[in-house]
Amino acid sequence: MAAVRTRGEVIRHRLSVTAVLVILLITLAPIFWITATAFKPRNLATTMPPTVFFEPEISPFVKLFTKRSQLREPPTEEVYNAAPWWEKTVFDGGEKVVRSGRGEVQPSGYPSRFLNSLIVAITSTVLAVSMGTITAYGFSRFKVKGEDDWLFFILSTRMLPPVVVAIPMFLMYRAVGLNDTHLGLIILYTAFNLSFSVWLMKGFIDEIPKEYEDAALVDGYTRMQAFFKIVLPEAATGIAATAVFCFITAWNEYAFALIMTNRRAQTAPPFIPSQVGSGLPDWTVIAAGTFLFLLPVAIFTFLLRNHLLRGMSFGAIRK
């Protein structure tokens, strides 16, 4: 593998490595800061100059998941000692965990919002990718009357910034009772992603030689079987890449989630900053919420990284 390098190439190589490192540093800095803040005690989150070295603690996460209220007076020694370790961290911060009459810990709004995010993002991704794949297959393999016009129309649905239609959408959703429902958001995000999914998948399916299916047909399979046995596995790379993009879009969507939902179906993005408003802002809790929120996309992308890398070059390079 090691190709012979000239002196000029070595220098250029070092320069580009340096450039990559600098860019990496700049892009990772905010993520580092969020992560660091998520493990800071509250009083260190907003110091000036910023605190870089500190003893990490878990209290922001405890606070993230529980309902709390301000302590008017410090807890009695007895109460403090009887509390489990995680509850103590809340006491240390001058708050107490809210319990029901039967002593059960009351959860904060975060877990349900997180779950909503997962439900909405996963479902809409599955729908957008599967519908997109089938549509793209049709466009790629069959003569469709006015194919170019249809494809342009599909693309054109992405040309308007979605927020522009937010108010009419809100009114329509209210009229049909879709606001603040999972289904409403799922439909919305599927619609956002579908055009993108069709276009991306068409590129990938166009690259799969038609002869693969022809061979399967000759071998005695139906077109449907050929689609599932040949086209889908061959398009796995494209499906993975498309799924990652769709998932990220749906997962990060903020504007519509803010307008269309408030409690039942609210997703994490509008919820996390909303915590700022209630009482004194606790930046560590917001950072903890953001930190956890970043994980699914990171994990998903990491799992599909091989497909993704191949997918990028696959779609881009044409013979």
């Binding site: 002869e211 693969y212 022809d214 061979a215 000759v218 040949i230 596995p233």
Partner: peptide
């Protein structure tokens, strides 16, 4: 239809999966 004709086809580009 193709699948009912029971012929085998060797493609120019092999078309191996």
């Amino acid at each position: 239809r193709v699948e009912e004709r029971d012929v085998a086809f060797v493609f120019q580009n092999f078309a191996l999966y």
